[in-house]
Nucleic acid binder design. Structure first.
Length: 214
DNA sequence: TAAGTGATGCAT
DNA sequence: TGCATCACTTAA
């Protein structure tokens, strides 16, 4: 298999344009034991004018990568336990990114299973923190150049992506998972035919409980 | 359905 | 400084 990274120009448009276009391409990890990774099957866009975006308010040490040039990684630590991976979009200075929520394992699967021993096959990578565990993606990958095949982590063009989208499609657009602001925006995209999509139905909105007045 | 984990950010 | 919140996962 021949891994040609997607060029930086691929990531220059808004994340809402790039997110569905990433479906079907390869997330590739250059591990000590060879290449590992798979097909991107679920993404979400986070936009510069979107209050749920980590870069909405201002640049901070945590979100610095989002403000940098397109085609780099933005990796963040969440809930005291996990990492999530994004591809930075839009020109430098504009904080947008695509959160990759699920991949379908395609190569280096034994290494991934060793990193994340779970019973069911689909449990390996069917969630944004799950595949980061399987691919050993941690804080040090924040800022990685995704457009170089020399990088320990990059995204490669899949010549079969159009065919794969036909076979695994259609692309479903829904609201994003796990956010409490701007939750109505249709910025989540997934291949309906993939077994690795993290959640099939829109998350039930939890009732917000207000404390009783004294 | 709820606990667990710790960084972040806003209020004090 | 304190404390609620958080782009999640797992065990029930």
């Amino acid at each position: 298999m021949d891994f040609t990274p997607l060029p930086a120009s691929f990531y220059e448009p808004s994340a809402k344009v790039v997110a569905p276009r990433l479906l079907g391409h390869f997330l590739v990890r250059r591990s000590p034991e060879g290449l590992a990774g798979g097909v991107i099957v679920e993404t979400e866009a986070y936009l510069t004018d979107d209050p749920s975006c980590h870069g909405f308010r201002r640049e901070t040490p945590r979100n610095r990568s989002m403000y940098g040039p397109p085609g780099r990684a933005y990796v963040y630590f969440i809930y005291g336990n996990y990492y999530c991976f994004n591809a930075v979009c839009a020109p430098a200075g504009v904080a947008e990114a695509v959160l990759v929520r699920a991949i379908e394992p395609a190569f280096g699967v034994a290494w991934m299973q060793a990193n994340r021993p779970v019973a069911g096959a689909r449990e390996l990578t069917s969630g944004p923190a799950k595949f980061c565990l399987a691919l050993d993606i941690e804080r040090e990958f924040d800022g990685t150049d995704l457009c170089s095949a020399e990088s320990p982590l990059f995204i490669a063009q899949n010549p079969q992506a159009p065919m794969l989208r036909r076979r695994q499609g259609p692309i479903i657009t829904t609201t994003r998972i796990g956010i409490s602001v701007a939750e109505h925006l249709p910025l989540r995209f997934y291949l309906d035919g993939s077994d690795y999509v993290s959640k099939r139905e829109r998350q039930v909105k939890r009732a917000k409980v207000h404390p009783a007045p004294k």
